[in-house]
Measured scan of single mutants.
Amino acid sequence: EPLWIRPDAPSRCTWQLGRPASESPHHHTAPAKSPKILPDILKKIGDTPMVRINKIGKKFGLKCELLAKCEFFNAGGSVKDRISLRMIEDAERDGTLKPGDTIIEPTSGNTGIGLALAAAVRGYRCIIVMPEKMSSEKVDVLRALGAEIVRTPTNARFDSPESHVGVAWRLKNEIPNSHILDQYRNASNPLAHYDTTADEILQQCDGKLDMLVASVGTGGTITGIARKLKEKCPGCRIIGVDPEGSILAEPEELNQTEQTTYEVEGIGYDFIPTVLDRTVVDKWFKSNDEEAFTFARMLIAQEGLLCGGSAGSTVAVAVKAAQELQEGQRCVVILPDSVRNYMTKFLSDRWMLQKGFLKEEDLTEKKPWWWHLRVQELGLSAPLTVLPTITCGHTIEILREKGFDQAPVVDEAGVILGMVTLGNMLSSLLAGKVQPSDQVGKVIYKQFKQIRLTDTLGRLSHILEMDHFALVVHEQIQYHSTGKSSQRQMVFGVVTAIDLLNFVAAQERDQK
């Protein structure tokens, strides 16, 4: 057995438009009618409502009807409940999964919650491996369901041993009777949507819809739904939504950006999952974080739909894509998950301010006199920076000697690579993860907040409520011999709460 199987392995699926269902090699399930009293909570997966979006479509000038398939009504709160249950049931049916076995899954959280929910009911041990950027709410729900959680670096490539995929496979090879159901490759993922989600949409719309818009992560949702719609409703256009920084969209030119990270969760990847059939997507749109969270908040405030950030991405694209539809036509959007997962993220004004998705003037509360002053007023001194090749031991000596707790790590040209902190280095040394002679590049981390000289002290204040420091950066445009230009970030300084307090105190003292 291989040590790991690539999540982007070539698909062996034989589905073709027009091929009889009787030739399918898979076990198919028909939607079942729910009894009045459910035998367990797993029976509350599927049969989610279709809700008309009344205000947002009109606000953006849509002539067509805009409908939302509300997947956050599933038992675990997301569309991923469907595939989690289906993968477990299919693994039980073919004898792969037996009582007492362990389920391991690399996930952005929602599939993990679905699997942990099913594992709690069915009696399996469950280990979820997820990147650090995923919300604390997801972690809390997983723990409450009895799952064990392993976190991995957000910026690790999918084929790196440190990625959530790599760590999951390492655990599988170490733990007896453990299984990775593997949402990236498992046919049960798109089949769950082909058999149930798509049929529900067709039934709820009486077979009449002209466009379907869905955000894409593993691709199982859009693949399964689109294949069924292509068979039953061939005139329906399928629109895929991919965040900026991901590479799922086609044509490839759409993916060209210097951005590699994004805040919206559960969609987009740096590889093409095996289950994603991009041939059934008629057109791709890219979405960005700001519009995703703005539209998610709009869905909550104006439509009462308590959905997550990827739902915002989907609707932001839908109001663009559906401009081509006329009166009497219908566009369906998939709202994948609930706001429950993001209470401390985009639902929080403070978080939105820190990330730059909300401006101070958007909030009406009274601010102190210094709130709208610029960061450049602080008069920061030149920063202490270190090269990635310097040793951890030497870096600790320098920081202690100069009285700093942290320093930016830059390359020879001064471009920011990340940050090192005294606390992080000492804990890594004590844990045996690094040696004093190791290069400081081994303990770089990139989960820090950046701020510009033109940003306000109010925004800085919000950042420092949650973080010990902020890195002050400025952009530099560099022209190359080819005539092309590129933008790079340079370090201007490091600012802490002490710097802000000293500035405010000094100004008030001078005024007296």
Results as ranks from 00 to 15, higher is better:
308 G>Y: 03
341 N>C: 03
465 E>T: 01
394 H>C: 04
289 D>M: 05
278 R>N: 06
390 I>Y: 15
290 E>H: 12
486 S>P: 05
271 F>I: 01
401 E>D: 13
488 R>V: 14
485 S>T: 01
343 M>V: 09
464 L>R: 05
410 V>Q: 13
428 S>Y: 08
286 K>G: 01
369 W>Y: 04
482 T>K: 05
398 I>C: 07
413 A>Q: 12
398 I>L: 11
505 A>D: 09
460 L>F: 14
503 F>C: 05
322 A>T: 05
372 H>Q: 14
331 C>M: 14
501 L>W: 07
367 K>F: 13
472 V>K: 01
374 R>D: 01
291 E>A: 15
332 V>T: 05
259 Q>C: 08
353 L>E: 13
409 V>C: 14
415 V>E: 12
300 I>P: 06
306 L>R: 01
245 G>L: 01
302 Q>P: 03
363 L>W: 15
480 H>W: 06
503 F>S: 06
363 L>E: 01
499 D>S: 04
491 V>M: 14
266 G>L: 03
385 T>V: 05
459 R>N: 10
414 G>S: 13
411 D>W: 10
448 F>A: 01
499 D>G: 01
374 R>I: 14
443 V>E: 15
451 I>C: 01
367 K>I: 11
346 F>L: 11
280 V>N: 01
507 Q>W: 13
275 V>I: 08
452 R>M: 14
412 E>L: 11
278 R>F: 04
358 L>V: 09
251 P>L: 09
258 E>C: 13
340 R>V: 01
472 V>I: 01
396 I>C: 09
412 E>I: 13
456 T>I: 07
381 S>V: 08
418 G>V: 03
469 F>N: 15
321 A>C: 13
355 K>W: 09
457 L>V: 09
418 G>D: 06
457 L>Y: 12
370 W>F: 12
285 F>P: 01
497 A>N: 09
262 Y>I: 01
336 P>I: 08
255 N>L: 08
477 I>C: 07
429 L>C: 14
320 K>R: 06
453 L>A: 06
392 C>A: 11
306 L>A: 07
287 S>W: 01
488 R>M: 12
486 S>I: 12
336 P>Q: 11
512 K>W: 04
279 T>P: 13
490 M>V: 14
488 R>W: 13
342 Y>F: 01
286 K>W: 01
369 W>Q: 05
314 T>Y: 05
490 M>E: 15
400 R>Y: 15
353 L>D: 01
433 K>A: 10
281 V>K: 01
416 I>W: 05
499 D>V: 01
356 G>T: 07
417 L>C: 15
314 T>D: 01
455 D>S: 15
342 Y>W: 01
489 Q>D: 01
452 R>H: 13
246 S>L: 01
466 M>R: 09
419 M>L: 12
313 S>N: 07
454 T>L: 07
461 S>P: 15
308 G>M: 05
347 L>W: 01
430 L>S: 11
328 G>R: 13
276 L>V: 08
378 L>R: 01
511 Q>G: 14
402 K>H: 11
344 T>S: 04
332 V>R: 03
465 E>G: 13
497 A>H: 07
478 Q>T: 11
384 L>S: 14
286 K>L: 01
323 Q>S: 06
471 L>S: 07
265 E>W: 04
275 V>G: 01
508 E>G: 14
436 P>Y: 09
395 T>E: 01
330 R>L: 01
285 F>Q: 01
486 S>W: 08
424 N>E: 08
344 T>M: 07
370 W>L: 06
373 L>F: 10
308 G>E: 01
286 K>P: 01
452 R>V: 09
279 T>C: 12
288 N>C: 12
291 E>G: 04
316 A>L: 13
259 Q>G: 10
478 Q>R: 12
503 F>V: 13
384 L>P: 12
393 G>I: 11
406 Q>F: 05
412 E>G: 10
354 Q>L: 10
397 E>V: 09
482 T>Y: 11
383 P>Y: 07
374 R>V: 07
424 N>I: 09
384 L>T: 09
411 D>Q: 01
409 V>A: 15
490 M>R: 12
327 E>M: 01
503 F>Q: 01
376 Q>T: 10
295 F>R: 05
299 L>T: 11
413 A>V: 12
358 L>T: 05
467 D>A: 12
360 E>M: 09
293 F>W: 01
329 Q>A: 11
399 L>A: 14
476 Q>P: 13
299 L>I: 15
386 V>L: 11
493 G>P: 10
505 A>V: 13
457 L>A: 01
370 W>V: 09
484 K>G: 09
406 Q>S: 06
303 E>I: 01
244 E>F: 05
448 F>G: 15
256 Q>A: 12
364 T>L: 08
396 I>W: 07
488 R>G: 12
305 L>Y: 08
252 E>H: 01
369 W>M: 15
315 V>F: 09
257 T>R: 05
305 L>E: 03
264 V>P: 05
397 E>I: 01
333 V>P: 07
301 A>V: 13
287 S>G: 13
506 A>F: 13
292 A>Y: 01
397 E>A: 12
274 T>A: 01
492 F>V: 11
302 Q>Y: 08
284 W>M: 01
264 V>D: 01
468 H>W: 05
314 T>E: 01
487 Q>R: 12
461 S>R: 05
424 N>F: 15
364 T>S: 11
325 L>E: 05
377 E>R: 04
270 D>Y: 05
380 L>F: 01
271 F>W: 04
302 Q>V: 08
446 K>V: 11
308 G>K: 01
415 V>G: 12
361 E>I: 08
413 A>F: 12
509 R>F: 13
431 A>F: 01
459 R>G: 09
248 L>H: 07
358 L>C: 13
285 F>Y: 13
445 Y>C: 07
323 Q>W: 10
267 I>V: 10
419 M>Y: 14
480 H>A: 13
467 D>S: 10
457 L>W: 01
248 L>P: 03
435 Q>T: 15
400 R>V: 13
243 P>A: 01
253 E>D: 13
358 L>P: 08
503 F>Y: 07
419 M>Q: 09
323 Q>I: 05
462 H>G: 12
245 G>P: 01
374 R>N: 13
267 I>C: 04
393 G>A: 12
442 K>T: 14
433 K>P: 06
302 Q>E: 06
504 V>F: 12
503 F>I: 01
253 E>L: 08
264 V>A: 07
494 V>P: 01
268 G>F: 01
506 A>T: 11
463 I>S: 08
377 E>T: 01
356 G>A: 06
327 E>I: 01
292 A>F: 01
335 L>Y: 04
463 I>Q: 13
415 V>A: 09
238 I>G: 01
355 K>A: 07
420 V>A: 10
384 L>E: 11
449 K>I: 06
303 E>S: 08
389 T>R: 14
304 G>F: 01
326 Q>F: 07
439 Q>I: 08
290 E>G: 13
311 A>E: 01
366 K>A: 12
472 V>S: 09
243 P>H: 08
417 L>W: 08
251 P>Y: 06
312 G>A: 01
424 N>G: 13
432 G>I: 12
477 I>F: 11
238 I>L: 04
413 A>S: 13
333 V>L: 13
375 V>G: 05
254 L>H: 13
295 F>P: 13
510 D>Y: 15
260 T>N: 05
390 I>H: 14
341 N>M: 04
458 G>L: 05
494 V>A: 08
396 I>N: 10
278 R>L: 05
331 C>R: 05
240 G>A: 13
359 K>H: 15
387 L>I: 13
509 R>D: 15
380 L>V: 15
336 P>A: 06
462 H>V: 13
478 Q>S: 13
476 Q>I: 13
301 A>H: 07
465 E>M: 04
435 Q>R: 09
466 M>W: 14
377 E>H: 06
280 V>G: 12
280 V>D: 11
354 Q>Y: 01
444 I>W: 13
382 A>Y: 03
353 L>H: 01
501 L>C: 10
446 K>I: 07
265 E>A: 01
254 L>P: 01
422 L>G: 10
416 I>K: 01
294 T>M: 01
252 E>G: 09
462 H>F: 12
254 L>E: 04
342 Y>L: 05
365 E>R: 12
347 L>I: 12
419 M>E: 05
406 Q>W: 05
426 L>F: 12
495 V>T: 11
305 L>F: 07
365 E>G: 11
383 P>L: 13
323 Q>N: 07
334 I>P: 01
318 A>D: 01
249 A>S: 04
373 L>A: 15
328 G>C: 15
284 W>N: 01
488 R>D: 06
387 L>D: 09
